[in-house]
Design a binder for these strands. Structure first.
Lengths: 204, 204
DNA sequence: TCTGTATGTTTACACTGTCAACATATTGTG
DNA sequence: CACAATATGTTGACAGTGTAAACATACAGA
């Protein structure tokens, strides 16, 4: 609510918002600080008062989406708290849904080197603390493993399988055909269900 | 073997080779026509006699790797022709291995919009004719499905599962920890084996 | 009110992709 | 072989980029 002259009001927020919008319409290429500054009606150097570099700006935008991702994951986690199996299936569905709706976030996470939330070493999985979404989704899987008493040694591989199913099909959706039908989410659910039940059977 | 003066000899090849090298060292960002031209000892506009644009140049480089990918896939296909199950497991291992060794190819394929070899519509899968590697790997899976008499309706999903396992773990490897151990390939193999045998059991 | 600090603008630089105009080598035709 | 057409280079220009320094203005606290 400033006098609407020299100062913008809340430029940082506006930059991030317009930046995300540009990411969505033009993709990572075509994402330019000068363009965003213009969209905000501000000089091309103004963004540098809020972000150290272009990279930092993109990182901030992505971190913001990451927060929303975390919130979504937490919602699923709470909603289906009582049922570990359903929880994992729903988690996969929501994962795919979220990524399909935020393809630039998806691309940025898994296609650049700037962002590595997951560290998988063969025996153990470590997830960057800042990325709560992945942390929680790992815990989601752990809950299921607990419920079927899966041995510790088998968990890394089991998690990898589950995650691969969800992620792999997401890639297909985002990168493959443009047509997106609700059915696809059911397909993801079915694949996950099969895998989870196979784990159950092997454990029984 | 020209007179080594005004003309380069085989600039197109040299550009692609140095370009691929640059992709490997600096990634997609930092991939610059002018840099590559300099590496080839040629003026900054020379590449435009061979490629219409930067994008076309990257596409050509990627197509070249794609060809190698296809050759690799075909080798696996032939080597294990007699055994559909082993063939699919080996295919997955080689897929992961190839992508880990060509991470820029991998990134370019699945991270940008320039390149969409696979079209998955829910019931059927279509693969771009030019990308023989994926075509063959689909056929590889089909061979297995034939060997266990899998119903047509179940095949799209089964393929998606198999491919997701291979691809998902590849993402982990490329994007996660830097450490690459041979064991990882065994993990991929194990996951695939489990999935294939689960399909077998359901069919028996 | 005065002064420091946050937030803008302007100007400048090196770098990018791309194009047009020009130069030189190679190739194919009479 | 000569000469024209063509392929392959070079040079110079342009607009657009990220980034930094110098400068200007508004706001906040003493």
């Amino acid at each position: 609510m400033t006098k609407d002259k020299y100062h913008h009001g809340d430029l940082k927020k506006d930059l991030m918002s317009k930046g995300l919008q540009l990411l969505g319409t033009e993709g990572y290429e075509g994402f330019s600080i000068r363009k965003i500054a213009a969209l905000c009606g501000v000089s091309h150097a103004a963004p540098y008062k809020h972000f150290q570099s272009k990279e930092a700006m993109v990182a901030a935008i992505i971190a913001d989406v990451s927060w929303k991702f975390g919130a979504m994951v937490k919602d699923v986690m709470d909603k289906y708290a009582h049922d570990p199996k359903t929880k994992n299936i729903e988690m996969g569905k929501h994962y795919t849904k979220f990524m399909v709706e935020n393809p630039d976030y998806f691309r940025f996470m898994f296609l650049t080197n700037h962002y590595s939330p997951i560290h998988f070493t063969g025996e153990s999985i470590e997830i960057d603390e800042r990325h709560s979404g992945f942390n929680i989704s790992l815990k989601c899987a752990e809950d299921f493993f607990d419920s079927i008493n899966l041995e510790k040694e088998k968990r890394a591989m089991a998690f990898l399988s589950i995650w691969s199913l969800a992620h792999g099909s997401t890639v297909m959706l985002i990168h493959g055909t443009v047509a997106y039908s609700g059915d696809y989410l059911e397909l993801v659910a079915k694949m996950l269900k099969e895998k989870l039940e196979s784990l159950e059977r092997n454990q029984a």
